[in-house]
Amino acid sequence: MIRLVPDQSAQITRTEKVEFTFDGEAIWGYAGESLAAALIRSRRLHLRDAPEDAGPRGAFCLMGLCQECVVVLEGQPVESCRIELQPGIAVTSLRHGADD
């Protein structure tokens, strides 16, 4: 296929893959990237349920304004778009039925 904008994804080099858990499930990401980016790549999109109508929500503004990507890390609610992924962290969603 002809393209004028080349696919450069193969030219990007990243840190080593590290494991972490999301609702107890082991997934991987790159150390130092945002937690939201790692969750989006692994297609863990449903991060919380809206408090009023329990509708599924996930990362939306990706710049620390909307609070939709909040998850629980070490007992604290954190914006996943503003948190750096560290190896071995245990992240919990704010979904009903998820352990928290």
């Binding site: 994804s9 990007i12 990237e33 945002s34 939201a36 980016a37 989006i40 790549r41 999109l45 449903h46 991060l47 809206a50 509708g55 599924p56 929500r57 996930g58 990362a59 939306f60 503004c61 990706l62 710049m63 778009c81």
Partner: peptide, 22 residues
Amino acid sequence: TKPGVVGLAGATALFKQNLSPP
């Protein structure tokens, strides 16, 4: 409000910071 919908400007944050598609 469904997961998987991101802002247009928001998506550029993902490109510039994480070099990842949404």
